[in-house]
């Protein structure tokens, strides 16, 4: 069920990427796609009635802990990919703003059409 949600989210992102002309909206679509993949990664590690993979005072039995805890590795990977996504996103937004300064528009087709040379 959640897998279907991930796929839908991914499709929404792809649709946005293809159909939108505004650079900012394209960047938002990319972020939606990224989150779909991140969600998928988290869901992989999930197990029914699982507990957080953190040792607290209540859990001492390590065997029982390993049986019940969800897989922490995808969570670490998701955290990393979120950080990467954040970096790329910040960079793309900055570029989009600079492009707005230079070209005066956010419309990707107009930006690609105009053959403006560097001042």
């Amino acid at each position: 069920m959640v897998y279907v949600l991930c796929a839908m989210l991914l499709c929404v992102g792809i649709f946005g990427l293809i159909s939108q002309k505004n650079v900012i909206k394209i960047i938002i679509s990319i972020s939606i796609m990224e989150n779909a993949v991140n969600l998928f990664l988290v869901v992989i590690g999930y197990r029914r009635d699982g507990i957080a993979p953190i040792i607290t005072e209540r859990i001492h039995e390590s065997v029982q802990f390993a049986e019940k805890a969800v897989d922490p590795l995808p969570q670490a990977m998701v955290l990393t990919s979120i950080v990467i996504g954040l970096g790329v996103m910040a960079l793309m937004v900055t570029m989009a703003l600079r492009i707005y300064h230079v070209y005066g528009t956010y419309d990707i087709t107009e930006i690609l059409k105009s053959r403006k040379k560097a001042e």
Partner: peptide, 9 residues
């Protein structure tokens, strides 16, 4: 510059 930004984006 204009071209660099376009290509980079």
């Amino acid at each position: 510059g204009a071209n660099e930004l376009k290509a980079a984006l």
